[in-house]
């Protein structure tokens, strides 16, 4: 008995031994690749294309960080994680950052010891049901069977929503989005619940998207964003300000098309100059090359370009900017100044 427990402890200890190494930036540079945790497949956010290359809204953040740090947006090792495995992967040091539609919550920040570096998508939890069911509101789901990805905040929100509204439901816990969709489309559950963006992305992959409806209730706030481990603030700053650079670039009109021009000589907008490294020494302060932000923006474009390319209204996912518009357009996307 003692032996087995001991051997287990040994394994876990082996895992933990690699964990607390502080300087993630040095590790990434020495390795030459960025280990980035993504989802196992959510259309538009992170999924491999026909050639096996990862692409999507969350993937673009990984690529921008790799471009800023290593100068090569393809120097990313993508690690697919499920809702259940993502945090263990991050805290054990298997991945350097997690960019996997993960909700920023109090307990994840404080109790699980992660640092959320920002929000790249303001989301909320919704429900999708087949139109044939005739349900128009989530409050009519009394007694329904609901598919849910286990290990997510949506699991807790769901329990709370049904408890507060004093209605019952039967949860069907599932590991990945793909399995959940399989059960949902076979009718093994009446409704599927996850972040509304995820529902829209999933609906786009259905045979007949028009036969399914997303219920009007948004039952939670789900600010999704990339995160890193506690304890390495320099690395957290790099990821945070890479994301901010993408957002600021959209605000200031820097796109993947004009970034080379703008960076070749100082423009008459000093903040653009500071961002692109033609003025001041922001790159040096953050511990990267002077043109780090230029490389990040050149990788996949600014925040708005990434949004339109992967999940915007012209894509099958078809998400409107809504809350995720720039603050100048009435949205919540806002970057602190580059000064």
């Amino acid at each position: 008995m003692r032996k087995s427990v001991f051997l287990g402890a040994l394994t876990v200890a082996g895992l933990a031994a690699g964990a607390a190494a502080a300087a993630t930036l040095d590790d990434v540079k020495a390795r030459g690749t960025l280990n980035c945790g993504v989802s196992t497949g959510l259309a538009g956010f992170s999924s491999p294309d026909a050639n096996g290359n990862w692409e999507g809204f969350d993937v673009a953040v990984c690529r921008a960080v790799a471009a800023a740090v290593l100068g090569d947006q393809s120097a990313v090792e993508f690690v697919p994680t499920t809702g259940k495995t993502r945090f263990t992967a991050l805290s054990s040091g298997e991945i350097d950052m997690l960019s996997r539609n993960t909700t920023w919550t109090f307990s994840r920040d404080n109790d699980l010891k992660f640092t959320f570096v920002g929000v790249n998508y303001y989301d909320g939890q919704g429900f999708i049901v087949p139109k044939a069911l005739g349900v128009t509101s989530a409050k009519e789901l009394d007694g329904a069977t609901v598919c849910i990805q286990t290990g997510t905040t949506t699991e807790l929100n769901l329990a709370e929503f049904f408890r507060v509204n004093n209605i019952s439901y039967e949860p069907v816990p599932i590991e990945t989005n793909a399995e959940a969709l399989q059960q949902y489309s076979a009718g093994a559950c009446d409704a599927y619940t996850t972040d509304a963006s995820g529902l829209a992305a999933s609906r786009a992959t259905f045979e007949n998207p028009s036969e399914h409806t997303i219920l009007p209730e948004i039952i939670s706030k789900e600010p999704l964003g990339p995160l890193v481990r506690h304890g390495d603030d320099e690395w957290g700053d790099i990821v945070r300000w890479t994301l901010n650079a993408l957002i600021a670039a959209e605000e200031m009109g820097v796109t993947s098309a004009n970034v080379e021009d703008m960076a070749s000589a100082p423009t008459n907008n000093p903040e653009i100059n500071r961002l692109l490294g033609t003025e001041g020494n922001l790159g040096e302060i953050i511990g990267l090359d002077a043109d780090w932000a230029k490389k990040a923006i050149a990788a996949n474009g600014n925040y708005g370009e990434i949004f339109e390319k992967y999940i915007g209204e012209k894509t099958p996912i078809g998400l409107a900017r809504g809350l995720n518009a720039q603050w100048t357009n009435g949205g919540l996307i806002y970057s602190p100044p580059f000064r």
């Binding site: 287990g8 876990v12 994840r108 109790d111 699980l112 286990t150 290990g151 699991e155 816990p173 590991e175």
Partner: peptide, 29 residues
């Protein structure tokens, strides 16, 4: 069991509880 969403002890203690509390070592032990 988790492969089919059966909530055994690996699914509760070693799955959701571990994930929501972040106590990997304790739960696994």
């Amino acid at each position: 069991a988790i492969a089919v969403g059966y909530m055994d002890i690996t699914g509760t203690l070693g799955g959701i509880t571990m994930n929501q509390t972040g106590r990997e070592l304790e739960c696994v032990l």
